[in-house]
Lab assay of single mutants.
Amino acid sequence: EQLARLKREFNENRYLTERRRQQLSSELGLNEAQIKIWFQNERA
């Protein structure tokens, strides 16, 4: 579920704002660094 949600977010926007990253962190139970790194890896 977390992965599917991250992929949906990535398809909508390849870059997250700090606020959006905080929201996802709270909703998915991941820390902000994990989300940031995931997005960086997807863009690579």
Rank of each mutant, 00 (worst) to 15 (best):
S25T: 04
Q2P: 03
F39D: 02
R19I: 12
N41I: 10
R19H: 13
R5A: 10
R14K: 11
R5W: 05
F10Q: 02
R5G: 04
I35L: 09
A33I: 12
Q2T: 12
E42P: 01
N11P: 00
Q23P: 00
S25M: 10
S26H: 13
E9V: 07
F10E: 02
R14T: 05
L28P: 02
Q22V: 12
S26P: 01
E12G: 04
Y15I: 12
E12K: 15
E12P: 00
N11V: 09
A33R: 08
N31D: 15
A44N: 12
L30W: 10
F10V: 02
R20Q: 12
R19P: 07
L24T: 00
E1R: 06
E27F: 05
E9P: 02
R20T: 06
E12W: 10
E42A: 13
N31E: 13
I35T: 01
S26N: 12
Q2E: 05
I35P: 00
L3D: 04
E27T: 04
E9L: 08
S26D: 11
A33C: 15
E27C: 10
Y15F: 13
E42R: 06
L6V: 01
R21N: 07
L30H: 02
F10I: 03
N31R: 08
N31G: 12
A44I: 12
A33V: 12
L24S: 01
A33Q: 13
L30M: 14
W38L: 04
L6T: 02
K7T: 07
E18A: 15
E12C: 14
E1A: 10
Q22D: 03
E32Y: 05
N13R: 07
G29C: 05
E18D: 14
S26T: 13
T17A: 05
W38G: 00
L3Q: 08
N31Y: 04
F10C: 09
E12Q: 13
E32Q: 06
R20D: 04
L6P: 00
E18M: 11
L6H: 00
R8D: 06
A33H: 13
S26M: 15
L28M: 06
F10H: 02
I35C: 04
Q2Y: 07
G29F: 03
E9M: 06
R14H: 09
G29E: 04
L28V: 06
A4H: 06
R8T: 07
K36E: 15
E27L: 09
L3R: 04
R14E: 07
R14I: 07
I37F: 10
S26R: 15
Q40R: 10
R20E: 06
R43Q: 10
L16V: 06
S26I: 15
